[in-house]
Amino acid sequence: MAVVVWIAEGTWPACVDAARTHAPEGADIVLLHITPADIPGAAHGAFVGLLGRGHPERDPGTTLEHMATASAGQLLADAAQRLGRPCTRTERTGRVEREVVAAAEGADLLVLARDGDRTHLGPRSLGPASRFIIDHAPCPLLLVWPETAPGIATIPPPPPHPHPPGPPHHR
């Protein structure tokens, strides 16, 4: 069984715990971290546009790239330690949601966590990245709450209807 676990800031411990609990012993587990490509690129562009090309050693985009790589490596190391089983650590850079979907191709299970408003049950608990992944995943998913799920009292009320549902009336 091949299991991909999306390791993202703030939600990764719940994903690792779910993989440890639900992936059978001997499963091939891939811990996956995606660094968004747009952050260092925006810093590079701002530096060139505002400050010119004269001092590339002061380009903040390069610093951000190094920091992102170090952060990803540390997250993956922490996740592997928490998992406590053999695993593969994979780092990618790009559009987060598309990279996760691409990495899940051929997997038997993708583990991810809710990344939106986690104070209420419902669709807003999914951020744009997880919503895209859920809609496009090429394999079964295990969607987890990063912390204890909110109570069912947080479900939004149903929309108002002009007539109660029921069978149509015949004359």
Rank of each mutant, 00 (worst) to 15 (best):
A80K: 00
T11V: 14
L126H: 09
T63C: 01
A80Y: 00
G122M: 09
H169A: 15
P160K: 01
D38L: 05
A70R: 13
D108Q: 12
R124D: 09
D78K: 05
A2N: 15
T62M: 11
T93K: 14
G26W: 14
F47N: 03
R118H: 13
T69I: 10
F132N: 00
P60A: 08
L31F: 04
P138W: 03
E65P: 00
A113T: 02
P56A: 05
C139H: 00
P167M: 05
L121T: 10
C139N: 03
E97P: 00
P60G: 10
R131Y: 02
D28E: 15
D28A: 15
A2I: 10
T63A: 15
A137E: 12
A77I: 05
A129W: 04
C139R: 06
R53Q: 08
P123M: 07
R131S: 06
L121C: 06
G151W: 03
L31H: 02
W145F: 03
E57H: 05
P160G: 07
G106A: 12
V96R: 08
A19C: 09
H136E: 13
T90M: 15
P164R: 12
D117R: 14
W145N: 10
A2G: 00
L51W: 14
T21E: 15
G10Q: 06
G10M: 06
H161V: 12
I29S: 07
T119D: 15
H120I: 07
V48Q: 09
L121A: 10
G84Q: 07
A14K: 04
R20W: 09
P86G: 11
H66N: 11
G151R: 04
G26I: 12
L50E: 14
H161G: 00
P157W: 01
G94M: 09
G94N: 11
P128T: 12
A72L: 02
A14F: 09
R98H: 09
P156C: 00
I34W: 12
I34F: 10
P167V: 05
P138I: 04
V111A: 13
W145S: 07
A42G: 14
A46Y: 12
G84H: 11
E105A: 14
Q74N: 10
